[in-house]
Write a protein that binds this DNA or RNA. Sequence first.
RNA 1: GUCCCCAUAGUCUAGCGGUCAGGACGCGGCCCUUUCAAGGCUGAGACACGAGUUCGAUUCUCGUUGGGGGCACCA
Length: 497
Amino acid sequence: MSETAQPVRVRFAPSPTGKLHIGGARTAIYNWAFARSQGGTFILRIEDTDPERSTEENTQVILRAMKWLGLDWDEGPEVGGTAGPYFQTQRMETYADALEKLKASGNVYPCFCTKETLDAKRAEAEASEGGYSGYDRTCRAIDPQEAQRRIEAGEPHVWRLKVPEDHGPIAFEDAVYGAVSFPADVMDDMIVVRTDGSPTYNFAVVCDDANMGITHVIRGDDHLSNTPRQILIYEALGLPVPTFAHLSMILGSDGKKLSKRHGATSVEEYAERGYLPDALVNFLALLGWSLDGETTIIPRSVLSAQFSLDRVTKKDAVFDETKLDWMNGCYIREMQPTQWVDAARPWLVKAGAAESDIDERPAWYAALYPLIAERMVRFDEIPAKLSYLFWGPRTHLDEKSVNKVLLKEGARAQEALMAARPIIADASIPWECDPLQERVRSLCDSLDMKAKFVFQPIRVAVCGNMVSPPLFESIELMERDDVVARIDATLEEIFGV
RNA sequence: GUCCCCAUAGUCUAGCGGUCAGGACGCGGCCCUUUCAAGGCUGAGACACGAGUUCGAUUCUCGUUGGGGGCACCA
């Protein structure tokens, strides 16, 4: 990025036609990281020119997702900026100005062909041997005087770019793909302004990027073929062409473009399922970029300092949720207990905690962290894994666990439970993990049982399941009477004593 | 159909003419252990194919095959 001494300005430009999806999020992350690493400016622009599909609600969802991901923008909605406004629908006069400029320079001409005849021609061409190869330039041949008369007579028309006849191949140096070249003769005279006077996507993008002083256009691969068209517009407008950097696609596990049937595709859904924004950012950053090929846990501080376009891959990447899970677990294990409580709050409530209780006993909730941190990868596992802490005196026995640990062991399990019960009920023993555990361990010796034959029945009785966080660390966090009550209930329910 | 792009294990990737082809997820084994995890050690697993260029190709060129994207008065 040395050929331009000017400061870096990049933008992420989503259309509010849906939620922020995974692919868009990665594009946003790369733009953000590139701006941060270059000391540049990161701009957020909303491309809402499609009134049919754009909604205010989607705009809000996108802004919320950006904030959740921690991708702060320097210019854009809510923060403003000198290159605004940042909604395309509010920049209509800039497109009108650009059109006037193109008319004046003769780089554009009116086209009176109706959508219907165009569609018919295209259908016909597609059915024939050669296939469709773009607009046939019928109206380009119309005499300017004649065209002017028809416009004044009120005939509906669009404006098309007059692609130079003698234009050589359109070549550019993509920051990711390297040298890319398109033959100019396959470019048709694209529509730049529609019948209703609104700009088409390619035209609006060029106007905005130019007016906003964008130096690097970092966007999805699906725009690679649009790039030569946009370059033609830059040229017609006499504007400098920015550096382009195209990003490969993110595919689903079946190698097909990521879509609804692959499950969660929006950032919002990942938040709801209990992924940490730092983990998602880290994971997405690595989908097409590497720091050194070795490092996988990359904090955003490193990302924002070390990101570089020359380490971006050209190959499409498959989104592998298994690895995201692992990475989320890594980030959970690095949290501070109080931080974890904050993040876990909605799921703790689902597990049975009262909001007020979380506020009143922060230390107790923070104590859950060491019990669960290395046993969870997503926050939505919390209800299933920690609800036993909120059962009070009742227990909810898992059938499979009962069969395997209590019924199958029969007398031995009953014996262990009955022997452990007085220890747990003994008020002279401090209600703490270590002394309780110590006493139960020595019980194993006196009963001549292996530890698991004593611990597992207690675990099932108290936690309801043969799989749980550490037993006495959990018991310590509960009330003695409740624990005893659960053992009694189990004894009665399973063994009838 | 046409134009453009891509190609290292199941997945994410390192590599930029000579490497035991490296790392991570996942998978197998062992250790630890009251369950499950986490952690440590360890094992299996890849250069799509075919021609060139070269003393030597994963790496450079061409072709084949496979995959992806564009070709709208959508963005």
